[in-house]
């Protein structure tokens, strides 16, 4: 049904258009700086057959995942603690707001100096990129707890633990999920940046090597790969989004 509808295939027009224009420009400029579509696709297919490429891809995801997990594991308890106390929240607000908008690229030189071009360096930066936005989300989640629910539990003489379990956590979880969603795309991007700028392991570094080596078909091939990686991450994130919305709807 979906595939039978010609409207769902309209995007082929734009894809064909881009390929055609690219090819025309490439031919008219004698292959430089735009290599022909064939050269790029050859570079891409050769790349996909090397173990090195798949290793890079795996490392890029590994860095993002490990950084994400460490970041969330640190951020959630911190966020809950800060959110539970009005004093802690107001005291840390400025610092958290400040750190939240500082991109990891800013501290990259320092971390690179400390750890060199290692996985440790990349993971640390991903953690930095993930940490503060999740902390802030978690504090907001805690502070969004329904006061009526808290009053009700207090009226039943519920213990502090019970209040945490039945009122605070259910309120904070969707916020934490939203934070995780934002953090997931951030983690992958930071993982690529550490390779690109800091020569850390992964796809970013390979792209940077291709560019400095003047291998333009490979540069474009890597960019295509990064686009596909980005789409996959977006799909993952929107799948998470659907879960979150479903959950809130309940």
């Amino acid at each position: 049904m979906r595939f039978a509808n010609p409207k769902n295939w309209l995007w082929l027009i734009s894809l064909g258009g881009v390929v055609l224009i690219w090819q025309l420009v490439s031919v008219s400029l004698n292959d430089r700086p735009f290599p022909s579509v064939l050269k790029i696709s050859n570079a891409l297919s050769e790349m996909l057959q090397t173990g090195e490429f798949w290793g890079d891809l795996g490392v890029t995801f590994l860095i993002a995942m490990v950084g994400l997990i460490i970041g969330i594991a640190l951020a959630v308890p911190l966020g809950l603690l800060v959110g539970l106390s009005e004093f802690a929240f107001r005291s840390t607000k400025f610092i958290l707001d400040f750190l939240k908008v500082i991109p990891p690229i800013v501290v990259l030189p320092l971390v690179l100096l400390m750890f060199g071009t290692t996985i440790k360096f990349s993971v640390t930066l991903v953690v930095f990129g993930v940490l503060f936005s999740v902390i802030v989300q978690a504090t907001y989640g805690v502070r969004d707890t329904d006061p009526v629910l808290l009053d009700t539990l207090a009226a039943f003489n519920a213990s502090k633990y019970a209040r945490l379990k039945y009122a605070v956590l259910p309120s904070a979880l969707p916020f934490i999920a939203t934070g995780t969603k934002i953090a997931t795309s951030a983690a992958v991007i930071v993982s690529i940046v550490t390779g690109l700028v800091g020569s850390g392991p992964g796809l970013g570094h390979s792209l940077s090597v291709a560019q400095t080596g003047g291998n333009s078909p490979n540069v474009y091939a890597y960019v295509v790969v990064l686009g596909v990686v980005g789409i996959l991450v977006n799909l993952l994130v929107s799948a998470m989004d659907k879960r979150i919305i479903f959950w809130r709807g309940k």
Binding site: K7, N8, L10, W11, I13, S14, L15, V18, P33, I105, V188, I189, I192, V193, L196, V197, G204, L207, S208, A210, Q211, G214, S216, V219, Y220, Y222, V223, L226, G227, V228, V229, G230, I231, V233, N234
Partner: peptide, 25 residues
């Protein structure tokens, strides 16, 4: 319908990955 997959592709490329291309160009 025509452009959204293309736009989706381009926006999925991290902005920083564009830098090497434009340095090349």
């Amino acid at each position: 319908k025509i452009f959204s997959p293309l736009v989706n592709f381009f926006r999925s490329i991290p902005g920083v990955a564009l830098v090497p291309i434009f340095i090349m160009l």
